[in-house]
């Protein structure tokens, strides 16, 4: 995916979000650390633009490290402090991440969200779905389905999406 492809995907996902939720009422975007955070910011600006509103869309960040199921199996330290804007009770939360892979990060994030309230619904938006799921989790909004090998790395940035080989340890 080129930078333009990513931009178009952000625009399409934003349209899908307002269509599915009949507007922006009660919507909260939550970007997963670290890759989902810039993407959540871009989506928030795009949602504002296409709805023609000055209203700021509540956008938070979430680091689900303490909820992971592989604590103790590998070094795991949070990248950043979680920042959730207010209570999530009754809101519709759109979790945003750059790459959906095994689904374990999303599983941890769903548990973490519970500790901030009881959302009315939680939806999942990702730029790339690369397959290899290990849990019954599927995204509601996808930038691109990208078949990959398990060992490959997928990198999403403002410049686009790149697949690279993992450097053997």
């Amino acid at each position: 995916m080129s930078a333009d492809d990513v931009r178009r995907a952000v625009t399409r996902i934003a349209h899908e979000i307002v269509e599915r939720n009949h507007g922006l009422d009660g919507l909260v975007l939550v970007g997963l650390q670290t890759g989902g955070v810039p993407l959540a910011g871009r989506l928030a600006r795009e949602l504002q633009r296409i709805e023609g509103t000055d209203r700021i869309i509540p956008t938070g960040t979430l680091d689900a490290t303490f909820y992971r199921d592989d604590i103790g199996l590998r070094p795991l330290v949070p990248e950043a402090v979680t920042d959730i804007p207010g209570s999530l009770d009754g809101r519709t939360v759109v979790l945003v991440d750059d790459v959906l892979f095994t689904g374990r990060t999303v599983r941890a994030a769903l548990n973490a969200l519970n500790d901030y309230g009881r959302p009315r619904a939680v939806q999942l938006a990702v730029m790339v779905d690369r397959g290899h799921r290990e849990l019954p989790i599927r995204p509601d909004y996808v930038g691109k389905n990208l078949p990959t090998k398990r060992a490959e790395m997928v990198d999403v940035s403002d410049d686009g999406v790149a697949i690279g080989d993992v450097v053997p340890k």
Partner: peptide
């Protein structure tokens, strides 16, 4: 420095209405 940086995350946890994580 590493401990102090990580402490920021736990200050946030402690400020929540449910100040508990399943980490340990």
């Amino acid at each position: 420095e590493e401990v102090l940086r990580l402490t920021d995350s736990f200050v946030e946890v402690s400020a929540r209405s449910i100040p508990k994580v399943p980490a340990l």
